[in-house]
């Protein structure tokens, strides 16, 4: 039986700066066999170790349909993330996972999909978006709404362009505060709702981002008659083990690292402690 808390060694293949403090890392298990057998769902996460500095959870930002490497997009904000940003291609880290429940892609088959992301909330959705786009015919209309604080805080700028060029995919971007050279939308994400056609009865909505943003967006969606079971979000808590043992991530008797981090709003409503 494999040890629950012991990471395997993985190699950083490449990095890409997304914003001044956010960087995407492409990773591959050092052991080929292990890499091939690593399977996951979008919305799941890994526990990533920078040896000596510690371990922290990050969403898998790549799609299982593109298995050559796995990607995480990491904002620099503390001990582990700072140490990770100091590493580059060829350096080794530890990986453990996948952890968490992930998005139920099967259940969304045949539905229109609405993705609403704020700031660093796009990475978990990105894996799902590519996953869906890679099996495009199984889903209805796809709408991607994305907001960040400033134009400099937008991640995956190239991919936003690629997605918007695709058929049957609508992409809208907004920033809270504009900047010289920015000609797009200005305002919080909900301003985009009025620019697209929403079909609540046929749509599954995925909302990811900072807690405040999630709160406002979900409220707005419910007012627009989205069913709580079909408003899907991810929750965040301090995590240590990622495997349901350490108790850091509980909300009541639910463990975000096992029962989550993906929940429908109908479930979130029922959570208390």
């Amino acid at each position: 039986m494999k040890d629950l808390l012991i990471p395997s060694v993985a190699t950083i293949l490449a990095t890409r700066d997304e914003t001044p403090d956010t960087r995407t890392f492409a990773l591959r298990f050092r052991d080929d066999e292990e890499h091939r057998s690593f399977s996951f769902r979008p919305g799941q996460f890994v526990e990533l170790s920078v040896f000596g500095a510690g371990e922290a959870p990050f969403c898998l930002a790549s799609s299982p349909t593109r298995p050559e490497h796995i990607e995480v997009t990491v904002r620099r904000c503390g001990v582990v993330t700072n140490a990770l940003h100091a590493l580059g291609p060829g350096d080794e880290v530890g990986l453990r996972g996948p952890c968490g429940n992930g998005f139920d892609v099967e259940a969304a088959q045949g539905w229109d999909l609405l993705f609403v992301a704020g700031g660093i909330g796009l990475p978990p959705l990105r894996g799902l978006i590519w996953n869906v786009l890679d099996q495009r015919s199984r889903f209805g209309h796809i709408t991607i709404l994305y907001g960040a604080r400033t134009p400099a805080d937008l991640v995956y700028k190239d991919e936003l362009r690629v997605w918007s060029a695709m058929d049957g995919v609508e992409v809208k971007v907004t920033v809270d505060r504009g900047a010289p050279g920015w000609e797009g939308n200005v305002g919080m994400v909900p301003v985009l709702f009025d620019q697209v056609e929403l079909r609540p009865e046929r749509t599954v909505a995925y909302v990811c981002g900072p807690p405040v943003m999630i709160k406002f967006v979900v409220q707005d969606l419910l007012m627009r008659k989205f069913a709580p079971e079909r408003v899907i979000s991810t929750l965040e808590r301090m995590m240590q083990c990622g495997v349901g043992k350490c108790n850091h991530c509980c909300v009541g008797h639910r463990y975000l690292c096992r029962d989550g981090p993906v929940f429908s709003f109908a479930e979130i409503r029922e959570m208390w402690e």
Partner: peptide, 29 residues
Amino acid sequence: YCFSVKDRSEEPWRGNAGGEGSAEQVWTR
């Protein structure tokens, strides 16, 4: 049984116990 997981540097104790091998750095998770 709540716990946290941390890496302890073994630097200070290298040499104390002998037989350390050639690793540049050692930690205990």
